[in-house]
């Protein structure tokens, strides 16, 4: 049935079940690992850490295997236009779900800034909260001093974060140049722009690490520094994780371009990755605006 007239319905595949096992191992390992490394429970003698990393390795294995099959099918021309549309839609909806995921953390940020911090300082119907429970607390953002008394300094927007903004926006442009080159079948510009994009992604991540070290060591800004630190690291950290994924995927695309996998018409994987990259970029613009700037 390899030449399905309208739609390619694949035969049974081992990869999904491998993926499910991998997720299970990772999740189980992660929970045990966390228990091991925090005080809450002493889970001595359990192997959380190796299990967790074994799970991650399994996930990577699954992805290589699964995507390998998909690529082979695509190269053999088994993918009808309809399936191509399915992949596109699937990716688009996946990105929408990611938007919602980031939305939660932005929601937490806005809730803290607009509601909970002012309330703790007596705004709205919370005068007594201020008077009786937190008399010394003042409403500021960034929150330099929490109601509990932890202090921190704020991250400045116009240093590294601004440089990072420029880097990421540039990388969005370069990936588009690469796409144009691909559409016009220009191999060398394609490889050049794509490699540049990967490099920009990696630079962004390096600078992010530098920024974190600065925050930890000089600003006293950490996950434990109250709601400002919590939202700061949650948002930038999740974004960073996405940039990491994106950079890896761009790297894979680069290799596939080297191997000549894509044609000027058929390059869905490339497009999916570039969508993802643009999405990560747009999220960063929001981050820069609301986490660093205002």
């Amino acid at each position: 049935m390899s030449e399905a007239p309208r739609y390619h319905v694949p035969h049974s595949s081992p990869w999904p079940i491998i993926g499910s096992c991998a997720l299970f191992v990772t999740a189980f390992g992660a929970a045990t690992f966390i228990h091991q490394s925090t005080e809450k429970v002493a889970a001595e003698g359990s192997f959380g850490e190796p299990i967790f990393f074994a799970g991650l390795a399994l996930i990577a294995f699954m992805m290589f295997g699964w995507f390998g099959v998909v690529i082979r099918e695509s190269v053999q021309g088994m993918n009808s236009g309809l399936l191509d549309r399915s992949y596109r839609m699937g990716m688009a909806w996946f990105i929408i779900s990611e938007v919602m995921f980031f939305g939660v953390f932005f929601g937490a940020l806005f809730y803290a800034r607009i509601l909970s911090v002012p309330w703790l300082a007596g705004a709205g119907n919370n005068l007594e909260t201020h008077v009786l429970l937190w008399p010394d607390f003042a409403d500021t953002w960034p929150l330099f001093r929490t109601p509990g008394g932890t202090t921190t300094e704020a991250m400045q927007a116009w240093g590294l974060p601004f440089v990072n903004t420029i880097i990421l926006v540039t990388s969005s442009v370069t990936v588009t140049f690469a796409h144009w080159a691909l559409r016009k079948n220009q191999r060398v510009p394609l490889l050049f722009w794509l490699a540049l994009t990967v490099a920009l992604g990696a630079t962004f991540l390096t600078l992010q690490v530098v920024e974190y070290i600065h925050a930890f060591n000089e600003l006293g800004l950490s996950l434990g520094a109250g709601i400002y630190g919590s939202t700061f690291f949650m948002l930038t950290g999740f974004h960073g994780a996405h940039v990491t994924m994106g950079t890896i995927m761009l790297g894979v695309m680069l290799m596939r371009c080297f191997s000549g996998h894509f044609t000027s018409e058929h390059h869905f994987a490339f497009e999916a990755v570039s969508w993802y990259w643009h999405f990560v970029d747009v999220i960063w613009l929001f981050l820069f605006t609301f986490v660093y700037w205002f």
């Binding site: 937490a108 909970s116 911090v117 703790l120 937190w134 929490t146 509990g148 709601i227 919590s230 939202t231």
Partner: peptide, 9 residues
Amino acid sequence: TSFFSAAGG
């Protein structure tokens, strides 16, 4: 983190 704790804001 202190998302759900008043002492951290």
